[in-house]
Amino acid sequence: MARAFEFAIPVPAKAVPDGPDWIHEIKFDGFRLRVERAGEAVRLFSRNGADWTGRYPRIVETARKLKASQFILDGEAVVLDLRGYSDFDALLSRRYDADVQLYAFDLLALGGDDLSRLPLSMRKTNLQRLVGRRLEDIQLAPFEVGEIGPDLYRQTCKHGLEGIVSKQLDRAYKMGRCAHWQKSKNPNHPAYRRVRDQF
């Protein structure tokens, strides 16, 4: 049964933000995933609220290894190719479900506390404490701060990646379309064509 909640969804950027109050994350080509832990119970939910707990067992197992007994993570489930790039076709095929890992980029709850109202800077600090030790199947999504945004976007395009997501550090988590999360997509990446072909 689908769960009633919404993810924060970035809007298309008119230009890559470059102010000091922004961070920039590489956009992975995967499935958005919410990871919820309450004691030993771990559940995974897709963007449309479907329960995917049984689909990605390694993420579930790794979530149980984290020190906190209660948390909610927001991230991207991916399959990595030999270059370390996310491979959407491999993910979509379902042949590699046992190898899917999570890049976590937000922390919405921890130890019974709702963190969603805190600024992103504080959520990132708490996320780093929780996931900072590099685990094989749940990793902290890397990010860069401030003026590097336009250069980072150019480099992601040069290397054939999907693009970047820029986020304002002082803002709370906002469900649904979120103007302080902005995506700059590589127009030559297959993900750009997938979205375009839907219209």
Rank of each mutant, 00 (worst) to 15 (best):
D99M: 12
F71W: 08
D97M: 08
A77T: 02
Q101G: 15
F71P: 00
L91I: 10
L73E: 00
D81S: 13
L82I: 09
D106W: 03
S69I: 00
Q101W: 03
Y103C: 00
V78F: 10
S93T: 11
Q101D: 03
D113E: 14
D74Q: 14
A77H: 02
D99H: 15
D97I: 06
D89F: 02
L108D: 05
Y85G: 03
I72D: 02
D113K: 11
K65Y: 00
D97E: 15
G84M: 11
F105K: 00
Y96Q: 13
L91G: 10
L118I: 06
F71M: 00
A98H: 15
R95F: 14
D74F: 09
A104I: 02
I72Y: 02
L108H: 06
R83T: 13
L102M: 12
K65T: 14
V100W: 01
K65H: 11
D87E: 13
R117Y: 04
Q70D: 12
F88N: 05
L108P: 02
L80W: 09
I72F: 03
L108K: 09
D74P: 09
R95T: 10
L107I: 09
D113I: 08
K65L: 15
L115R: 08
L91M: 15
G111E: 14
G112V: 07
S93L: 11
V79T: 10
L110E: 05
D106T: 04
D99C: 10
Q101E: 06
D106Q: 05
D89P: 00
D106F: 03
D81H: 11
F88Y: 14
G75H: 02
D74H: 07
P119K: 07
Q70I: 01
L66Q: 01
Y85N: 13
Q101P: 00
S69E: 15
V79D: 07
V100D: 03
F88R: 04
F88E: 05
S86V: 04
L102R: 03
D74G: 11
D106K: 07
E76P: 09
L82T: 14
L66T: 04
Y103P: 00
A68W: 01
R117D: 12
Q101Y: 01
D106I: 00
A90Q: 11
D113L: 06
S116Y: 05
Q70L: 04
L115P: 06
S116R: 15
G112N: 08
R83D: 14
K67S: 11
D87W: 07
A77L: 05
R83V: 07
L118F: 13
L110Y: 04
G112D: 07
R94T: 15
V79M: 05
A90E: 09
L108T: 11
P119R: 11
L102S: 08
G112I: 08
S86A: 13
L82C: 04
Y85H: 14
K67L: 11
Y103I: 03
Y96G: 02
L107C: 12
S69D: 13
D114N: 13
D114L: 09
D87I: 04
L66M: 07
S116G: 07
L73I: 05
D99P: 01
D113N: 06
G111R: 11
L80I: 10
D99A: 15
L102A: 03
G111D: 13
Q101T: 12
L66E: 02
A109M: 15
L80S: 08
Y103W: 15
S86N: 03
E76Y: 11
D87F: 09
P119I: 15
L115W: 11
I72A: 07
D114R: 09
R95G: 13
K67H: 15
S116T: 12
A90V: 06
S86P: 02
R83L: 14
F71I: 01
